[in-house]
Amino acid sequence: MAGALQTRGGMRCLYLYNRSGVCLHYHVWLRTHTTLSPQQDQKLMFGLLFSLKSFTSKMDPTSVHKGNLGVPQFAGQGCSFHSFSTNTYKLSLMETPSGIKLVLVTDPKMGDLRSALKYIYNNIYVEYVVKNPLYIPGQPFSWFGLIYQVPAIQLCFR
């Protein structure tokens, strides 16, 4: 299930957004190049995902009714995308019906990470964040970082 994640050293960073575009969590494993401050970077990333989503739903060559370009859509509405790759990184995206966006930036050589993202959502986000009674929904949280230290989960990221 988390097999793809076990490739050592392939991880770069992880972003987690709620449906209103607030970055709930940002974690960096390895990042040697930054052009912006973390806050600006998170905003730009959300903007890129938003625009790419409207791009893909307008581009969709298999549907006839595609609406107008740039109109906000609900999670799961229209054609979305699950990954894109460049020569230096690969970005994988998972959007849940509740509008949570989980973004994993990895080495470009990584394979399909859809199951890995599902694993992170089910076994880390839901288990340790959503089920935490002290967590206020919609608030950014930082203790996700501590979760990576839990030995069983740490195994998946090695």
Binding site: R12, H33, L48, S54, D60, F81, F84, T86, N87
Partner: peptide
């Protein structure tokens, strides 16, 4: 033109230097 800007932004978000932009976008239907 939207693709042109997305391509440029993807270079800004690269975790390492020397990014030349999106080469492959995998959407649900294409």
């Amino acid at each position: 033109s939207l693709w042109h800007s997305m391509h440029a932004i993807s270079q800004q978000l690269s975790p390492t230097v020397g990014c030349t932009g999106i080469e492959l976008l995998e959407a649900d239907t294409f």
